[in-house]
Design a protein around this nucleic acid. Structure first.
Length: 204
DNA sequence: TCTGGGATCGGCT
DNA sequence: GCCGATCCCAGAC
C-alpha cells in the first residue's frame, strides 16, 4: 500500500478515464484522531456535456449542479433521497465550462470498522453484515460520515483525502452500464461503471 | 432468497 | 407538485 496523496492533476481529465483509475485507491476520512479507511472497489463516471445521467448534463448550471463545474478534486455531495447522500469527486479537463465527476459506489473497509459500525447504527454478526456496511453509495457516505457540509470543499488531508493505495491490473477491472438511471435515454447504456472483478464489496 | 413498496427531503423535471 | 446516481423491511415463495 502506498500512502502518497493524489494531487488535483489526477482528477484533471475526462471522468471516464479517471473513474477506473480510482479503483484500488484508499479513501481516508479523518475524524479527530481517528482514521476511517476504505479501498475503492466500484465507481461510476458522470460527464457534464452530452450525458443525460449527469445532473450537469440534465439541468445545466443550477444551484445544485454548480459544484460539478468547479475545480477537479472538489467534493460533490448531494441528497439522493431522504437522509441519504451520494459522494462524487469532480473530474474534468480543467477548462472553462467543463463539468463532470466520479461517483464512489462502494468501498472495502480497511480501517476503523468499529467507527463505521456506529455511524451506520449496525452490528456485525456475520460476514454479510460487514459487506452491507459500505457496499452502496449512500451506505458508504453514512459509514464515512460524509454529509452535505463537505459539498463544494476540496479534498484535504485535514478531513478527507485519497491515496495511491493498491495497484489494480487492467484485467481485474470490469465495466457495465451505470445503476438506476432509467431516465437517461441513450446514456443509460454507456459502460461507465467500473469495478474490481470478484470483489465481495461491489454492490452487484 | 427475492420483490415491492415506503420513507416524507429538497431541487427542479 | 413531482420524483430521485437509495436503503431497508415485511411478506411471499
Amino acid at each position: 500500500m502506498k500512502e502518497e496523496i493524489l494531487n488535483n492533476s489526477f482528477f484533471a481529465d475526462d471522468p471516464v478515464k479517471v473513474a477506473p483509475k480510482l479503483l484500488g485507491k484508499y479513501i481516508i476520512r479523518k475524524k479527530g484522531k481517528n482514521l476511517i479507511i476504505g479501498k475503492i472497489v466500484e465507481t461510476e463516471a458522470y460527464r457534464g456535456k452530452g450525458d443525460k445521467a449527469c445532473h450537469a448534463g440534465r439541468f445545466g448550471y443550477t444551484k445544485r449542479t454548480k459544484v460539478l463545474f468547479s475545480k477537479p478534486g472538489t467534493i460533490y455531495v448531494y441528497p439522493v433521497h431522504i437522509n441519504m447522500y451520494c459522494f462524487n469527486v469532480i473530474a474534468h479537463k480543467d477548462k472553462e465550462g467543463e463539468a463532470g465527476g466520479v461517483l464512489i459506489r462502494s468501498v472495502e473497509p480497511v480501517k476503523g470498522i468499529e467507527i463505521m459500525t456506529k455511524l451506520r447504527k449496525k452490528e456485525i454478526k456475520k460476514e454479510k453484515d460487514l459487506i452491507n456496511l459500505t457496499n452502496g453509495p449512500s451506505k458508504f457516505c453514512m459509514a464515512f460520515d460524509i454529509t452535505r457540509n463537505l459539498n463544494g470543499l476540496p479534498l484535504s488531508k485535514d478531513y478527507l483525502y485519497i491515496t495511491e493505495g493498491e495497484k489494480v491490473l487492467k484485467k481485474e477491472i470490469g465495466r457495465s452500464p451505470r445503476i438506476n438511471i432509467p431516465y437517461a435515454e441513450e446514456a443509460k447504456d454507456f459502460l461507465w461503471r467500473f469495478f474490481i472483478k470478484g470483489n465481495k464489496f461491489v454492490s452487484k
